[in-house]
């Protein structure tokens, strides 16, 4: 493997109270085969000893230890602290599965207008059919994406008020509105182990629903905005009754306040672009209560 291409990539990992998962991820990332420019871990105030563990076991990792959980703003800080022109974003439970990142970095050099290169995020490394082609995409997962740092500087990082979930969706809309492209590259695979901890809770439902409402408010095409929001509100109301929970109403209330306070972010997308992004508008996503 040649050293030069990966020297153009910084790795940014967001962590929160999943020390064992982060250990697996760092074991997979900090290997001699991957001569990254640097590896950064942004820790959202973990209370399970993650910070001490990283300091002791991985002294070469640049650690951004925050004193409290600030959600995706921690990722933003890691992206902006990265010194390489490309930033590989990973979750604490995701890691590169194949040694194809040198080819990938060369691919990036050919595509300066690409804001982000969505990698092939899989649940397991087995049974993969890999191709090295890249195609236009309208979404990605922070668990496995290469950001063009120039794009982050131009578009801005994730919207911090979202805190958690759908931040990629909002960022995609902003990137497309500014004329950047997103491509999907299936030649590099990231295995997302999707650890169950922190994943299924009413918080999940709250942030997902609220942020989708904000997404519709900001980016749905003007002609369809009211109909789409009405349809999603209906879903949330039905879910509230069926699951006997107030979480969706709280999400509406929060979206109501944030939506009005961040009114300047309303920038409707063209219909065809919005259709291509195709947000999942089913309510109750991830809620097990």
């Amino acid at each position: 493997m040649t050293t030069a291409p990966l020297q153009r990539v910084s790795v940014a990992i967001l962590s929160y109270n999943r020390r064992d998962e982060l250990h697996k991820t760092l074991n997979a990332v900090c290997r001699p085969e991957y001569p990254w420019r640097e590896v950064l871990v942004a820790d959202n105030g973990s209370t399970d000893g993650t910070v001490e563990f990283v300091r002791n076991a991985f002294p070469d990792v640049r650690l951004l230890a925050l004193d409290r959980n600030i959600g995706i703003e921690a990722s933003n800080r890691a992206y902006l602290a990265a010194t390489a022109p490309w930033v590989l974003s990973l979750d604490d439970d995701s890691a590169p599965a194949v040694e194809s990142f040198d080819v990938l970095a060369e691919e990036l050099a050919r595509e300066p207008q690409v804001a982000a290169l969505a990698l092939s995020v899989r649940r397991s490394a087995s049974a993969l059919e890999r191709t090295s082609s890249s195609e236009i995409a309208y979404g990605f997962s922070s668990a496995g994406v290469l950001f063009n740092r120039a794009a982050i500087e131009s578009i801005g990082p994730y919207d911090p008020e979202l805190f958690l979930f759908t931040n990629e969706l909002h960022w995609t809309a902003r990137a497309l509105l500014q004329g950047w492209r997103i491509r999907k590259y299936s030649g590099a695979v990231v295995v997302h182990r999707s650890a169950s901890r922190n994943r299924h809770s009413s918080k999940h439902a709250f942030y997902y629903s609220r942020n989708l409402l904000l997404f519709l408010l900001r980016y749905a095409p003007t002609a369809q905005k009211a109909a789409m929001m009405s349809s999603y509100f209906r879903e949330l109301l039905v879910c509230s009754l069926l699951h006997r929970t107030g979480v969706y109403l709280r999400a509406c209330n929060s979206a109501w306040r944030i939506g009005a306070a961040t009114r300047e972010k309303i920038q409707p997308l063209p219909e065809d672009v919005f259709r291509s992004i195709n947000p999942d508008l089913r309510a109750g996503f991830g809620y097990l209560g």
């Binding site: 408010l217 905005k225 009211a226 109909a227 929001m229 009405s230 349809s231 999603y232 509100f233 209906r234 949330l236 109301l237 509406c252 979206a255 109501w256 939506g259």
Partner: peptide, 10 residues
């Protein structure tokens, strides 16, 4: 109700 709420929101 949802339709009314959506218009109010906007």
């Amino acid at each position: 109700g949802a339709r009314g709420f959506a218009y109010l929101f906007l």
